[in-house]
Design a binder for these strands. Structure first.
Lengths: 310, 310
DNA sequence: TTAAACCCATAGGAGTTAACTATGGATCGA
DNA sequence: TCGATCCATAGTTAACTCCTATGGGTTTAA
């Protein structure tokens, strides 16, 4: 009898005896002695307060109670075996789950990463939770999400004080974005910080890191653009910019994917901002999580390579 | 921790820890020491070759693998508990099965017993297997049926050589049965053995004990009735007798239930025959089986009482 | 009918397993 | 940084499982 089996021996014995119709033969196939089976079955019958096997005849038969109990015992055994297999599936990344926390605007930038991950590990359930920048970190530390995707401070991936680790996915420049009817849409020449300060903007609200980067830039350059609209919806921003005279600040990636938006370079350069992954350094990282981090690393370096080629 | 549980302790521990989010609290509710849990979980993780619990945080959390495995473990536990309850159902006679072996003609006599049993224990699956008299005994000893209903030898419930036990349900007299157009149907006076020997009969074939009883009677009284038809179907016998000039020998119970049949007493009396239950003395008797025997005993004594009242 | 063969139950002893107590190391809050 | 809390480890004891040896009962064959 293999020691390496969590399922109760007495039940395995019962099932084997029922199959073989004999204690002696079951003992042989199980590689235990026959008295072991006698004893174990006795204990089992004692526990269930009911005879399970009829030893009176030529062959050992299940009693009514035995028939019924064996059926359930088999199912229970099957459950545990299935559970064991499922665990190995998790390690093979054919099952599992991964919870990402990110700010709404991030999906423009990283959904190709998600698509990549999903196509490679289709069994993993991906869930993304929209949350403000601030909440991502606490969600990480409370293990409500496995990995966060954040806009980190423009100075780069500083070491955060918390028990988290970060990895810079990519860094990109910010530009002023204007719609077709905006005066500056015609001649998209570089503008100065002072000119930028004269614009009327539709901006993300202060929940968002991107907004903080911009505010910092304005403060640093002693300018104060007019914030005509604040919103937490990127869609609103894009629509407002496309339709009217308002401008906004967005990463080039987003501007370029929207046909109605035009990027205008500001000088001195608007802050670069970096998109980073953030996760718990000390906590348990599921296989699904580790696989994501690895894939993200690959994806990030490919991205760099493409930029160099451009 | 209650020793009286077949379900693997390590899994109960795992489930408890997952519920409580803490080894210490789980140990308290389980009434075991905390190191016991540490050790058991360690072994379980070792066996599954996968961490199940994440102890890094403030509260202990299931890992992906742990979540999956716990789900299966719960189901397995549920199965075994269900199995235990099902056994008690069997003992309560709210479940179970009973296989009766009998000869086709017996149902005229004992179906009220069956109906009684079924109404009292509706959860028991009753199955009746038609088989020749000879086969009933072997079916009993081979445990293909639980209880047989037989026509025993007219001398009464002799002790049979085999490992079987019998119980006489009732005893009844045999009569010559004739149809409406039979010459003897008009004046149903007693007839002699010699007169009986002149009859043309439709009889059961020699598979049936009843036939043997009649043959023995004829042999003892040196008479030889003409067997016009032999059959194994009681229906054929009754129809042939009702329609024609043939007679037969049947127990009074059957004759009286058939409006087209008339009973004629023979002198000296045709053998009484007894309807008996037969079952395995030494073998396992299911609760359903024991309940049937008990009910049959009651039913039999009520029958005797009714006869006395008549 | 008796002897041999077969099968399951019982008894007692050896090895393994699971429980406990005591203690160490790590983490979280104050 | 200290105290509190929590899980892990070590060592010991109790319990359990398994084994061998043997007995009782039934079946088969001579």
């Amino acid at each position: 009898m293999d020691r390496r089996d969590i399922f109760p021996r007495a039940l395995q014995y019962l099932i084997a005896i029922a199959e073989q119709g004999s204690y002696t033969r079951a003992a042989e196939t199980l590689h235990v002695s026959q008295p072991t089976l006698s004893q174990q079955i006795k204990q089992l019958e004692d526990y269930l307060q009911s005879p399970l096997l009829d030893r009176s005849g030529r062959t050992v038969q299940l009693t009514d109670a035995g028939k019924i109990y064996v059926r359930h015992a088999r199912r229970a055994w099957g459950e545990l075996n299935t559970g064991t297999r499922a665990i190995h599936d998790v390690k093979n990344l054919s099952r599992g789950s991964l919870r990402l926390g990110w700010t709404p605007i991030t999906d423009y930038l990283t959904c190709s990463l998600l698509a990549n991950y999903n196509s490679r590990y289709p069994g993993i359930t991906l869930s993304t939770l929209d949350m403000p920048q601030d909440e991502i970190e606490s969600a990480i530390s409370e293990a409500r999400v496995d990995i966060g995707i954040t806009f980190s401070k423009p100075t780069g991936p500083e070491e955060l004080s918390g028990p988290t680790e970060t990895f810079t996915l990519f860094e990109e420049a910010l530009y002023l974005a204007v719609g077709r009817v905006h005066p500056r849409a015609k001649r998209r020449k570089r503008m100065s910080a002072q000119e930028f300060g004269m614009e009327s903007l539709v901006q993300l609200n202060t929940d968002f890191a991107l907004r903080h980067h911009i505010d910092r830039y304005c403060h640093d350059h002693a300018i104060e653009p007019h914030n005509a609209i604040e919103t937490n919806s990127l869609t609103v921003i894009i629509e407002m910019v496309e339709l009217g005279l308002l401008a906004t600040v967005l990463p080039s990636t987003i501007i370029n994917t929207q046909s109605g938006l035009y990027a205008i370079e500001v000088s001195p350069e608007l802050p670069h901002h970096t998109v980073s992954l953030i996760w718990n350094k000390s906590g348990y990282k599921s296989p699904a999580c580790l696989a994501f981090l690895e894939l993200a690393s690959d994806w990030s370096s490919h991205l760099l390579q493409e930029k160099r080629i451009q």
